[in-house]
Each structure stands twice: as structure tokens, then as C-alpha cells.
Design a protein around this nucleic acid. Structure first.
Lengths: 301, 301
DNA sequence: AACATTCATAAGTTTAACCCATATATATAT
DNA sequence: ATATATATATGGGTTAAACTTATGAATGTT
């Protein structure tokens, strides 16, 4: 017994039109074709669905009995196609974003809000996490995309540059270097430097030329979180390296940022996503919106 | 967009097996065929359903999204086929019987009860009505079958003889003719006869030979209901014609039935059903049971 | 680096779906 | 009764779809 949707649709059409000929027209097939489709359905079900002569047609008792199930069936199909349409038209779906905790409060809330207005049916959730967890969360499927600084790329993921920011020095406004407008890497050697433990600093050392790296390689203090570093700076314990995206935090601590030059070193931020997994339209669209409305400058790769 | 059940079944199989190759085996098609079925489904939906390489396969976000709808859909199909199976296996359906009120209390309750035991899921309902309404009720579709005495057959109906009964005379046990064991038509002429108005008597007149008919053509009383006639007989107002199926009523009135001979005239009872409408298996089976377990003798057509 | 496994693709064949023409049946009109 | 118009059924031939076999391409494993 292999009942097809085509057969069910034909059955319903004949029932509704009360005629093979008319039903064939609405189905845009010949009466002959319809005749054999119904015949086939009746053979499949081993049940007569219409009491018909050449002059009269009515749906049989058995036909009336299965009618509700047939209608449910075809409705279910409509539901499915609507759902698919929804997925494609972005009034349905989910976007889950893993983002470095430091970045979570900066641009994303504004953009998520904007996206929500454009596609109110799409649910957007943000997973703020440690920088080092971003790739894991994306590759495990917990998040659709991840946003964070450059890191060694896992093989299952692909990355896309979203913005680059030059390193700054955060310092008390009263400090002499706050007056110069900018500072050179080699000048940092003479300051009491507070650095972050881990990849943030390690990567920078790799980026810097050998001699420049020396200037930061022996800091006065090493801490784990940027918030701690800024707090220490505020209390006169030294200066720390930071990036423009942390502007709000810096301001809240009543500090200023001074760009570091010679050379200008950029820290890249990427959008991570799974190489294999196909993105939902809702997700793809979120990426588009994010890239378009992000205020940070994008810079060299 | 023409999504087929085959495609959905293929989708589900691949999701469940986590592999095209294995799913193809369970579907009893080649991997190649399955590959193109899925491809076609994805084209139809314009949506990637699996993230696949040659070494890894997982259901995509979009695939997981439509999965519940697909399962509902296929479940609905199962429901339909089960319903059809039920219709055929007689654990589902309805039997509606139009029956002459006089017959309703005689054999049918016993047979309906028996049928209920055999097919408990089938709902049997009896419409007891006037004899003249039986054919109308069947041809209008209110009832599946009708049971009643011979009448002019409507063109949309077909009839089938179920039993025949010879005419009797109902009389007080004290009456002289009650002693004889039987009576001839021409002997009726000398009695005070009570007849029923309408077809019951008219048909009899047609059945009788011309001269015999004269004996009943001028009755002493004419009434509309058999119950009235019997009541009158009980009160000594005369005798009346009746048939064996009314045995219970006759007994309740403390009367006896005397067969009428010379000639023995039979009244035929038929089962009426629609010529065009296909009978539900439940209905067809009821007819079989009825004919088999009916106690009345069947006689000549 | 070679291999085994898995999905995709191409070519050819079988199956089924469809249209056209025509037969058959029946309600309505003559 | 008979003819007519209208509706479904059927048979033949064509087109399109579905399937199988064979092969190719990609990738994790040894």
C-alpha cells in the first residue's frame, strides 16, 4: 500500500468538486489521468471511495470516513511548508551567539535589538563566555556563531575578520604620557606595566617585532581580567594595555586611552562559525546585519 | 515545491540512521537513489537538511527544525492507513438500519446484539419508521439498509428477499374458526373482517385471485394500525389478517393465529439498499449476519 | 602515503505518469 | 422508446521520472 500525496489531493479535489471532470480542471490534469489516480488510490486502500456512475458521483461511506484524516494529512503538509517558508523568510528560527564577555556589552546589545525589530519572530540568544571557550561552544553546536579575538582556529571552524583595533595604553589622566596624545612601544619599557595573563598578551608578543616585545615581556604585575587591570591602573599601580572596544570600562574607571605606535599593532576580531554546518537563513542574516551595523572599523586582515 | 511522502520518509531515515548508505539499506533502495531523493527534497524546500561531507553527516539546524513536522506528517499517514485498515477489518464504522416499526422488536434486537459481540467497534443504529418511509430513508442516505415488506422499488434501490410469511387470521381463541387449525379465503367472506388501510391490504388484493379477493374487499372495519385491529379483535369486533412475525402482539392480546389456505398467500419481506452506493464492509457483514441468523423461513421469491 | 569508507554524479534502463482518442453508461429531452 | 448530451472508464503511445550500476571525489584512518 503506497498512498501518495498526489492521490490524496486528487481524492479531496474530486470530493470537493463532486465531479472527476471539474476536479481534473482544478488539478490541471486530464480527466483521464485523474480517473486512473483515483483508481490507483482505491486499489491501494482496497476501498471504494466514490459511488459513481457516468451520470452521478458521490463520495462513498468509506470515502466520507477517511475524509477527515485526509484533510488533516494535507493540512499537516501545509504546516510543514509554512514552517519551511518561515525558516527561509526569517520569521522563524533561532540565532545563538557565543561572545567574549568583554565584547558582550559593547556593540551586540544594540545590534541584537535592531535585528529583533527587523525579524521579531527570530529568537536571538547571547552566550557570554570566556574568550577561550568561544570556539568550543561553536564547534559543539551550542552556538551558531562566535565573536571574539584571534585565536588558533579549530579545524571544524571557519573564521571571518570583523574588525581590528590598535593597542592603546590605559592610564590615569594625570599621568605625563596622557598628555602626549600617543606613545611608542619602546617608551613603555620605562613604565610600570600591568598585563593580562594568557593569550591576550602572548599573541601580542608574537605580533610585535622581537626588540619591541622585550618592552612588555617583563611586566610589573600580571592579572587575569581586564577589569582588575583597569582597577589597578585607577589606583596608581601602573598602566595597562587595552583596546578601544573597552572604552566604556576605561571611562568608568576615570582613565584615558593613549594609542601606541611604532609600530601600530592591531588585534583582530573574528566571527567564528562551523565549516560544515549549514547556516540557517536567520543566522546568515544576523551576520549580515552585524557586519553592516557594527561601528568598529574593519582593518587589514 | 512538490514535496512527496517518499522524500520525507527518506529524510527521516537518513536522520535516524545518520548515514545515507545505511538509510538506503533500510529503505531498500540504492545509496545513489537516496542521494538524489534527498537532493530533490532540499531543492524543493530550498533548504539544506544535512551538513555532510563524505566522512561525516549530521542533520542541519534547518533539518532539526522541520523534523517534528515531518514526523507528525508521517504519523498522520499511519493514522490514515490504520483507519482504512479498521474500516476493512470491521472494527470501525457504522451500520444504520431503517426498519418497519412492527419488525423492529421482533428479530433485529437479537441479531444486533449478536453482531455487537462479534464487532464491538461497529456502531449499529436502528431507525424504526413507518413501512412506507423505509425506501425513502435508504435512498436519501439516512440509512445504509432498510428492512420491510414488499413495495414498489425505487429506481435507485435494489432489493433482496429475506423472508416470506403466509397470511393468518387473528381471532379470539373461543371463536369457532380457531378450532379448525386452518381456514380458506372464501370462508372469510362470512366473518366480520377488520383490515388495515393502505398497502398492506391493497397488495394482498393484488396477490389474491380475483374471486378470492372479493372476500376481503368489503371489510366490516378499516383501521390504520395493526395494534388497533388486534385490540378490536380482542374485544370481539371481528377477525383480522396478520402475519406470523406479529406473533408476540397477537399473544399479548390473548388471541390466536389461524393459517389461511386455498391458496396460501405469502407476504415477502426485503432488504433494501442503494444500487449505486458502495456498502461499507461493516454494513455488508451485518447483512451476512442478519441473513444467517434470522429465524424466519425464507420462501419462494 | 595508501587505503577504506562515504556521498555525489553520470549513463542507461525500467517504471509510471500523462495525454489523446475513444468506448461505455445514463439522465434528460424529444 | 429513442436520441442526445454529458460523465467516467479504458487503451495506446509518448514523455518524464525513478532507479540501478558504475565511477568519481573527498576525507578520516592505518
Amino acid at each position: 500500500m503506497n498512498v501518495t500525496l498526489r492521490q490524496l489531493r486528487a481524492f479531496l479535489a474530486v470530493h470537493q468538486e463532486g465531479s472527476f471532470t471539474k476536479a481534473a480542471e482544478t488539478l490541471h490534469i486530464t480527466q483521464s489521468a485523474l480517473s486512473s489516480i483515483i483508481k490507483e488510490l482505491e486499489n491501494n486502500l482496497e476501498l471504494g471511495l466514490f459511488d459513481r456512475s457516468t451520470r452521478k458521483l458521490e463520495t462513498s461511506e468509506a470515502g466520507r470516513n477517511i475524509l477527515p484524516a485526509v484533510i488533516r494529512m494535507l493540512d499537516e503538509m501545509d504546516t510543514l511548508t509554512n514552517e519551511v517558508k518561515g525558516l527561509k523568510e526569517l520569521d522563524y528560527g533561532k540565532v545563538r551567539i557565543a561572545v567574549a564577555q568583554q565584547l558582550a556589552s559593547v556593540e551586540l546589545p544594540r545590534i541584537i535589538s535592531m535585528y529583533n525589530t527587523m525579524y521579531p519572530q527570530v529568537e536571538v540568544s547571547m552566550i557570554d563566555c570566556g574568550v577561550e571557550k568561544i570556539q568550543d561552544i561553536v564547534s559543539s553546536g551550542e552556538a551558531d556563531i562566535g565573536i571574539g579575538p584571534e585565536r588558533k582556529l579549530q579545524t571544524s571552524l571557519s573564521k571571518r575578520l570583523i574588525f581590528s583595533q590598535p593597542f592603546h595604553l590605559a592610564t590615569l589622566p594625570s599621568h605625563p604620557i596622557a598628555q602626549g596624545g600617543r606613545i611608542r612601544w619602546k617608551d613603555i619599557a620605562s613604565l610600570e606595566l600591568i598585563t593580562l595573563r594568557g593569550t591576550f598578551t602572548d599573541l601580542l608578543i608574537e605580533n610585535l617585532m622581537r626588540d619591541s616585545a622585550d618592552y612588555i615581556i617583563k611586566p610589573k604585575h600580571q592579572v587575569n581580567f581586564m577589569s582588575t587591570a583597569l582597577s589597578m591602573v585607577k589606583n596608581g599601580l601602573g598602566v595597562t594595555l587595552c583596546l578601544p572596544y573597552a572604552f566604556e570600562s576605561v571611562k568608568q574607571n576615570e582613565l584615558v586611552m593613549v594609542p601606541i605606535c611604532d609600530p601600530i599593532i592591531y588585534r583582530n576580531f573574528y566571527l567564528y562559525s562551523s565549516k560544515n554546518r549549514e547556516k540557517l537563513p536567520a543566522v546568515q542574516k544576523f551576520i549580515d546585519v552585524y557586519l553592516k551595523h557594527m561601528h568598529f572599523d574593519r582593518a587589514l586582515e
